[in-house]
């Protein structure tokens, strides 16, 4: 464990807590893409298949449980909760899951470190996580106005993967034979997808104006 990875995990944890607090306290999910939340639940479900077979550390297991519980409860809130679901904008959140899931699955079948079910599922979860934010970014473009909590949520989500890149660089130089091209490339693609959002987020923060994405 290194400071970059710990900071990354804490930032990731903060992003799901910000989102859960938003939905739980103001009982609204306006501006949040259910498609992205469902994709994230799938990412964690396919990535943490080894939660009961491979014990890494107490920290690792607890964080996996938190991410699984939070992502599935956010999906539950947005689909089932009688008040929250009313604020879900399903006419705007129209991104088709399959357009992301199928290519990631096919890619994972061809590009993986080992052709085993667990490893292919793990690689699939990496590719899917890289693109899972797309429905959310599309929704933000459409609805244009971004409330603070949603902006913070997307920002933290992007920042966590950027911190992970620093973690991979650190591990590459400190651990012999630590090479995971698949992880590094998908993590880089993921961070780049947030780049334009970061640009507008920092500008709005610097000029102290409401965050607006161009049409």
């Amino acid at each position: 464990m290194n400071i970059f990875r710990l900071a990354g995990d804490m930032t990731h944890l903060m992003s799901v807590i910000v989102l859960l607090l938003k939905i739980h306290t103001i009982k609204s999910c306006a501006g949040i893409s259910l498609k992205t939340q469902e994709l994230y639940a799938l990412v964690f479900a396919t990535r943490y298949l080894d939660i009961f077979t491979d014990f890494i550390s107490l920290y690792n297991t607890i964080m996996k449980l938190i991410f699984l519980a939070s992502s599935f409860s956010i999906v539950w809130y947005m689909r089932q909760h009688k008040i929250v679901r009313r604020s879900y904008d399903k006419d705007q959140d129209t991104f088709r899951h399959l357009f992301l899931i199928l290519p990631c699955l096919l890619l994972a079948l061809f590009i993986n470190e080992k052709f085993t079910f667990k490893e292919v599922m793990w690689t699939f979860s990496l590719f899917l996580e890289a693109v899972a934010i797309l429905p959310q970014l599309v929704l933000l473009q459409r609805t244009r106005n971004i409330d603070n909590l949603t902006g913070q949520y997307v920002f933290l989500l992007g920042a966590y993967r950027a911190l992970y890149i620093l973690n991979w660089i650190y591990r590459y130089f400190t651990e012999p034979h630590y090479v995971h091209w698949i992880t590094w490339i998908s993590g880089l693609v993921q961070t780049l997808l947030y780049a334009d959002f970061f640009y507008y987020y920092f500008n709005s923060w610097k000029n102290n104006v409401k965050l607006q994405l161009p049409a």
């Binding site: 990875r5 990731h12 890494i56 690792n60 996996k64 991410f67 080992k114 667990k118 490893e119 992970y164």
Partner: peptide
């Protein structure tokens, strides 16, 4: 045959 090393990152 290296035993499948579990992924230690979240």
């Amino acid at each position: 045959e290296d035993k499948e090393k579990p992924h230690d990152e979240l």
